[in-house]
Amino acid sequence: MYRQLLEHSSLLIFPLIALVLFLTTFVAQVIRTYSRRAESYDRTASLPLGDD
């Protein structure tokens, strides 16, 4: 499919690169976030409750 896409211009590789990059970074972010214990966020999560 990408060959048909690139027939128009090699510039069209950029959306594909960005797409793969975005998904990879996002998956990494999900893994990173859930690799920390939920309790480690407790202080930050309670910030709205102790402000006044």
């Binding site: 211009s9 950029f14 959306p15 690169i17 960005a18 797409l19 990059l21």
Partner: peptide
């Protein structure tokens, strides 16, 4: 990145 990659081409 999303906007640029989509709009520039």
């Amino acid at each position: 990145i999303g906007g640029v990659a989509e709009i520039i081409p």
